[in-house]
């Protein structure tokens, strides 16, 4: 199953609800385009909801990192929400768990963005 993205706004934060797989050639391109679209519309506070991401490969991990650095370098913030165990474990193995700001609760995540 390829990746799907739904976009919504909560308190000035753009939430991208992602579902499916983030892999080379499928989700990785989709997530790149989605983040680019958000930035192009002038928002730079992004919450990636990964609760329905059931698979991610190294390309997908790389895409998350690229999104994080792109947003951060532009003066914005990107946080991750609702990691599945598989994604959580992969970020632990790759030592990225402490690089990202990761939240388990949407309200907490929203309030953690700089106002």
């Amino acid at each position: 199953m390829s990746m799907k993205v739904k976009t919504r706004q909560v308190d000035g934060i753009t939430i991208l609800d992602l579902s499916g797989r983030i892999t080379l050639g499928e989700g990785s391109v989709t997530i790149r385009d989605a983040v680019r679209d958000v930035l192009a519309k002038g928002s730079n506070k992004i919450l990636l909801n990964l609760g329905d991401i059931n698979y991610i490969d190294s390309s997908g991990i790389g895409e998350l990192v690229s999104a994080f650095t792109t947003v951060k370098n532009g003066g914005g913030e990107l946080k991750l929400l609702n990691l599945t165990k598989k994604v959580h474990d992969l970020l632990q193995i790759t030592k990225l768990y402490t690089v990202f700001d990761i939240k388990d609760d949407e309200a907490t995540a929203i309030s953690a963005f700089t106002k």
Binding site: S58, S59, I61, G62, E63, V65, S66, F68, T69, L90, I93, T94, K95, L96, V99
Partner: peptide, 18 residues
């Protein structure tokens, strides 16, 4: 090494490691 500080934010290079 994708875990090295200078590489940790690279967008690729984790396949062999995994």
């Amino acid at each position: 090494d994708p875990l090295a500080p200078e590489n940790i934010l690279r967008g690729s290079g984790r396949g062999i490691f995994l």
